[in-house]
Write a protein that binds this DNA or RNA. Structure first.
Length: 803
RNA sequence: GGAGGCUUAGCUCAGCUGGUAGAGUACCUGCCUUACAAGCAGAGGGUCAUAGGUUCGAGCCCUAUAGCCUCCACCA
């Protein structure tokens, strides 16, 4: 028997345990069609917030739906624990920088810390009822992942898509590492626009350049003006004398100079921005590297060496001003590129790094984007936009400690890279040596290890490879290529989705997945994203689960449209709580009435039973349609609407028959029993996608024809009750009108209706006649008189017994 | 500046290939009805952002405008 009150705390713990012990979500390749999900390994960055629950729940619900539709679900969970986010977390907790702790000790701390937080994540996702096979869980820093990531790297090198090159790269002098374009964010800052006078070498003509970065004066390698700029074009071909610095540089022409920006004359430094790099390459300009890797001016720069960038800026402006070079200084607010992990302005550094070729294959990436179904469809635009605008090859070198090592050494003599052999993976070049001699002619046996580690994304872009155990003996490549579904939030389309597509293209020349589903964000307040760094989430998910139950929290997470941002809403939780409670109560009611029920072949249903079954059939069609489009929230809404109608109307109608067979007959009671038995079963299945716990509890108590409700399959109903659905809705409208009349008279709904007169067409009167007993019992009506009209139907008289 | 999205009841949001505006919630009014008061029944509440256009007919399609949001670019 179901308990009088449902205790979520107790039951949820019980079923979690049961699912675990019985390995309900275990993935075993069998003959069935596989539905595979590539879900984001959360970055282990400390704080878990409600946004995590939101985006992970929706995919999880899809996995449950597909399982109910008979698919074999491959749905592993992962943790992205390598890389900068973990390092920063440790640095923050330790109050020390990585280099102060030392490479090995620091890595050790990273392992420990990420493990601690991973357990917290795991606890949360388990408590939420996430139906994943933990046997397939992966970590991006585990030896098996390192192996696959290194294998991927070596393959790309072999195929010529990955190269080692001295090149300017984005540099963060807070994190002391190079970074990729995708790791940049923009930030508004206040700065000054400095108008500085230069002179030509030839005739000493004065011209003015406006710059926000006067500290780059020693790094100027050229001055540019637009050839169409009538005011300044005469300068082209002359030479410019740089103030304060004893240097003379050419004045050159380039169309890219905006005539109306600043003074229309630009200084080109190595490097201040991307245009500088472009010009540097295009015109083969010399290199003047004036920054050190930790954000200072190089010591060889006269007067300013050793100063931090901002100090140098201040001093140079002061010196320029003292010597009369400054025309004016304007206040300026503009946006700069900062590193997303630390918020510090990105600089450029020139060093030898590993790059993955992006620029040569943009068209291929776009093509793959076209081959993937995006949900919602407009999210593809974000991908296209990014691919079209990406300006750099992907730099995957990071001058950090906690990451996947490059399986590379360099020959001490000739500097040539030597790569690890496939059979030796995974390797750490810092603690091992190559087994072969230097490949090139020198034959040297001494090697310098590559100290850099790979960018986090270089590894997380291989999640499909990790999932399929790429290149391993037990590879699942034949069933996971491509995977069925990738799910993530919109912010990582440009990183995770993009890079995964890049790798999939290089490895297989193929799309990595059939579908991508993009979720929105949870907003803390209107227009304010919940973010880990801001700590503006008021609601700890564990607290919410304890207060409302996992099922109810899932209700909140499952509402809302795909790809649309959502506000955190207590109201939605309350609504979910009511719904879950209602499911419990109606199940109790049905349980009470099916004690003596025996399932047998039966098709001679009462009218309203046909109505309820037919409506369910219709509802389920729409329900599945939404879920096939990954619209979890709309499906839930649709189901919920049917469910309340079922409770408030159908149960109210059928209960009289169930209670009083002596009055209605055993057959009519059986018809009702069979209907509620069938409908509840299906409702539990449908709801189990969202509420895995309470539905399991009811299912096990009432049905129990399988090990778990989550292993059952949804079988579509095949009734032909369209007429009953249509006319039944009208009869319910009559019922509603009579109830309204009673309420208007402030009397109980049990008040007797002495006379009820209805005019209606042939169809509706026919149905009314079939349903007459139920209809009268529901309304407590003594007499129902009908009159035939040509079309439609309405009540003409309601006479209540108001005594 | 580029791309995309949003604007519908006090609030949170649905609204399918154009056909008389929907839900939940809040507020108000009734009702202890043999599953449920965490319930049931009902009432009020909307120039569908604005202005044009297409159409017999527009919340929906087209154009422009405004406000908000997200991503990207903009460092001279």
């Amino acid at each position: 028997m179901l308990d009088k009150k449902y205790s979520a705390q107790e039951k949820e713990a019980k079923w979690l345990n049961y699912w675990n012990e019985n390995q309900i979500y275990k993935f075993i390749p069998d003959g069935r069609k596989v539905f595979s999900i590539d879900t984001p390994p959360p970055t282990v960055s400390g704080k878990i917030h409600i946004g995590h629950v939101f985006s992970y729940s929706q995919v999880e619900m899809i996995s449950r739906y597909k399982r109910l539709r008979g698919f074999n679900i491959f749905y592993p969970f992962g943790f992205d624990d390598n890389g900068l986010p973990s390092e920063r977390l440790v640095e923050k907790e330790q109050g020390k920088k990585a280099h102060e702790i030392g490479r090995e000790a620091f890595s050790e701390l990273c392992y420990k810390t990420t493990e601690k937080y991973e357990n917290e994540f795991k606890t949360l996702f388990s408590k939420l009822g996430v139906g994943t096979d933990w046997n397939y869980a992966y970590k991006t820093i585990s030896p098996s992942t390192i192996k696959i990531s290194q294998r991927s790297f070596l393959q790309l090198v072999k195929d010529g898509h990955c190269y080692h090159k001295q090149s300017p790269a984005l540099w963060c002098n807070e994190c002391l590492t190079s970074i990729a374009q995708a790791e940049l964010e923009t930030k508004k800052i206040k700065t000054t626009f400095n108008f500085i006078n230069f002179k030509t070498l030839e005739n000493g003509e004065t011209f003015t350049i406006a710059t926000t970065r006067p500290e780059l004066l020693p790094a100027i390698v050229a001055v540019f003006v637009n050839p169409k700029d009538e005011k300044h074009s005469h300068l082209i071909g002359k030479k410019a004398v740089i103030p304060l610095v004893d240097a003379v540089v050419p004045i050159m022409a380039d169309e890219k100079v905006a005539i109306d920006k600043g003074t229309g004359i630009v200084m080109c430094c190595t490097f201040g921005d991307q245009t500088d790099i472009e010009w540097w390459k295009k015109y083969n300009l010399p290199l003047k590297n004036i920054f050190t890797s930790d954000g200072k001016i190089a010591s060889e720069v006269k007067n300013y060496g050793g100063l931090k960038i901002l100090e140098a800026r201040k001093k140079i402006v002061q010196d320029l001003s003292d010597q009369g070079y400054v025309v004016k200084i304007e206040e300026l607010e503009h946006e700069v590129q900062v590193h997303e992990r630390c918020g510090k302005e990105a600089e450029y550094a020139v060093m030898k790094q590993w790059f993955i070729n992006i620029m040569d294959h943009k068209k291929d990436f776009l093509k793959i984007g076209d081959q993937i179904k995006w949900h919602p469809a407009h999210m593809k635009a974000r991908f296209n936009e990014w691919v079209n605008n990406v300006a750099w090859d992907w730099c995957i070198s990071r001058q950090r400690y906690f990451g996947v090592p490059f399986p590379v050494w360099y020959c001490k003599k000739c500097g040539e890279p030597v790569f690890a052999r496939e059979e030796d993976l995974p390797v750490n070049p810092l603690t091992s040596q190559p087994k072969q001699k230097c490949c090139s002619k020198c034959g040297c046996k001494e090697f310098v290890p590559e100290k850099d580690v790979m960018d986090t994304w270089a590894t997380s872009s291989t999640t499909p490879l990790i999932n399929m155990r790429y290149g391993e003996k037990n590879s699942l490549e034949n069933i996971l290529r491509p995977m069925t579904l990738r799910a993530n939030a919109s912010e990582i389309i440009r990183t995770w989705d993009f890079y995964t597509i890049v790798k999939s293209f290089y490895h297989f020349g193929q799309k990595p997945w059939e579908n991508v589903m993009i979720s929105g964000f949870v907003m803390a307040n209107k227009g304010e994203k919940i973010s880990k760094s801001k700590g503006n989430s008021k609601n700890d998910p564990i607290d919410l689960i304890n207060e409302y139950s996992a099922d109810v929290v899932r209700y909140w997470a499952g509402s809302g449209r795909l790809g649309t941002d959502m506000l955190f809403s207590e109201e939605t939780l309350l609504r979910g709580r009511k719904l879950v409670n209602k499911i419990w109560n109606v199940a109790k009611f049905i349980e009470m009435h099916i004690q003596d029920f025996k399932d047998k072949k039966f098709s001679d249903y009462e009218f309203f039973d046909k109505w309820a079954l037919g409506s369910l059939q219709e509802m389920e069609k729409g329900f599945c349609k939404y879920l096939d489009e990954f619209e979890v929230g709309l499906a839930l809404n649709h189901l919920e609407k049917y469910f309340w109608n079922f409770c408030d109307n159908y149960i109210e109608i059928v209960k009289h028959r169930l209670y009083r067979p002596e009055e209605f007959g055993e057959k009519a009671r059986y018809s009702g029993q069979k209907a509620v038995y069938t409908i509840l079963y299906k409702l539990l299945q449908d709801f189990s996608i969202f509420f895995p716990f309470i539905t399991e509890e009811i299912y096990q108590e009432l049905y129990h024809d399988n090990k778990s409700i989550h292993l059952t399959t949804i079988k579509p109903l095949k009734f032909d009750f369209a007429k009953e659905v249509e006319q039944g809705d009208k009869l319910v409208e009559f019922i509603s009108a009579v109830r309204g009349e009673k309420t208007n008279h402030n009397v109980s709904l049990k008040t007797t209706v002495k006379n009820l007169c209805i005019s209606g067409d042939e169809n509706i009167l026919d149905c009314l006649q079939q349903a007459c007993k139920d209809f009268k019992a529901t309304l407590f009506a003594e007499n129902v008189k009908t009159r035939k009209i040509k079309k439609g139907g309405h009540i003409t008289k309601i006479e209540l017994d108001l005594q």
